[in-house]
């Protein structure tokens, strides 16, 4: 697989680099593969490079899709808490 992890962009620095923060762990990464990144974005990081900006709206939609399952479940499936 390709190990990659979402992290928060905390600071943009020289040479197309950025400091990202994941739960208090900071790491310098390269932005050479992405465009228009600003502080506050979440980016997905692989081997020291940002691969893509994460889309919050889409993430919420996916979570809503899981939640939809819950409402469905409540109607027709008996799930133990």
């Amino acid at each position: 697989m390709c190990l990659a992890i979402p992290a928060y962009v905390e600071q943009l620095i020289a040479d197309d680099q950025a400091i990202v923060n994941l739960c208090g762990v900071r790491k310098e990464i390269s932005l050479a593969l992405v465009e228009n990144i600003v502080v506050g974005d979440y980016i997905i990081i692989h081997a020291g490079f940002a691969l893509q900006k994460l889309d919050q709206w889409e993430a919420e939609r996916t979570l809503a899709m899981f939640a939809e399952i819950i409402t469905l479940n409540k109607n027709d499936i008996n799930v133990e808490e």
């Binding site: 190990l3 992890i5 994941l22 739960c23 208090g24 762990v25 790491k27 990081i45």
Partner: peptide
């Protein structure tokens, strides 16, 4: 600790 967990996520 959250940070230990996060560092482990970064490094696999």
């Amino acid at each position: 600790r959250e940070q230990v967990n996060a560092a482990c996520e970064f490094l696999g």
